[in-house]
């Protein structure tokens, strides 16, 4: 089972990288960009019977730093996360 984990900075945590990219987009002449935030996509191929709980644990114990980041686990057949 192919699983995608999106790790993103929590709302309210300043993202200096996103801000720099935002400025660069504006420098290239792209108007109307209101905000840019940068995260990380982790693609995993896991056993089909891997439980949601196990996936959550992987995220909490290693893939995301819960002090500053949130995560979303995307499984096959599920739509894009909000």
């Amino acid at each position: 089972m192919k699983v995608r984990v999106l790790v993103r900075l929590k709302p309210g945590v300043l993202d200096p990288q996103g801000r720099a990219v935002h400025h660069a987009l504006e420098g290239l002449g792209f108007g109307g960009v209101k905000d840019v935030r940068i995260g990380r996509v982790i693609e995993m191929d896991v056993a089909d019977d891997t439980s949601d709980e196990a996936l959550d644990n992987m995220c909490r114990k290693l893939l995301a730093n819960m002090v500053i980041e949130d995560y979303v686990v995307e499984k096959p057949g599920q739509g894009e996360p909000a």
Binding site: P16, Q17, A20, N65, V67
Partner: peptide, 17 residues
């Protein structure tokens, strides 16, 4: 130490990049 949970908080990218 923060990643291991021995200290609170996290060290992020420097604000000025």
């Amino acid at each position: 130490l923060t990643e291991a949970g021995l200290l609170p908080g996290a060290l992020m990218r420097n604000a000025g990049q």
